[in-house]
Amino acid sequence: MREWYGKDWGLTVRMVLTAGLLVIVYLAFLTILAQFMEAIPLLMIAAVFLIAQYYFADKLVLWSTGARIVSRDEYPELHTIVERLCNLANLSKPRIAVIDTPIPNAFATGRSQNKAVVAVTTGLLRRLNRDELEGVLGHELTHVRNRDVLVITIASFLSTIAWFVMRFSFYSSLFRGGGRDRSAGATIIIFLVSLLVWFISFLLIRALSRYREFAADRGSAIITGNPSALISALLKISGVMKRVPADDLREVEGMNAFFIIPAISGDTIMSLFSTHPPLEKRIERLSAMERAMEHGTY
């Protein structure tokens, strides 16, 4: 029997294309870099940083957001909802954290399914009803299942190096004061190349991040069997996000890549730079899934 949710080949193709482009950009970057400088030590330093970031992702994020791991006794209902969704989708249950803030939001982090943490804010728990909360948790559980922390960390690896090289070559050219011509020329080339690589990979990583969001929305709809509940949750969250004062928002803005709805008012920022797809597009795709459920085809 044909399943109602079908396959979103477009999304898969876009994701593979983006990742492929990223690989090409990185390979070109490494080739050029190797022409001018000893790239190995730099790669190793960056690798240490990234591995550390990857290994401590859960602790780092929990600490910076003030999220607290909560036990079953403290939040029995939240735990039960997560357990049942995990059972339905045959996933390991992540740890659950709560952030004490009125801003409704949620995120997932952790390098593996066993180390994963799904965090929700008290504002989210207060504002959403059970079905909507289920939709949001399904979205975060899909992030965990899709190993999005791993994917984005790997994708960001050389982008981080490019950023390092850019800064490094910029300062070294300042100190040298343009003395020896040949090496100064090389430094400028390295600077420009790494700037370009950093910029292109930044855009590609953001695009990849947006596709991962679509995928997480789809996953949530498939697990919960209720796309409309997630639509309703997204509308509620984004409605509140637009109304809360900017001071509160700035505090959490660095965390956007992890949140279900980014803490910025979407109108001001160009969609190309955004970690999340526009709300209208997310709702449009979820509505298509809802229709597919009723008609039996996608």
């Binding site: 399943e3 396959k7 999304l11 898969t12 994701m15 593979v16 339905l88 989708a89 045959n90 899909t142 299942r145 899709n146 190993r147 994917v151 596709y211 991962r212 679509f214 995928a215 997480a216 789809r218 996953g219 498939i222 697990i223």
Partner: peptide, 10 residues
Amino acid sequence: DALLGRVRPA
């Protein structure tokens, strides 16, 4: 499937 972001129900 995970890397491609595809969810299949269990």
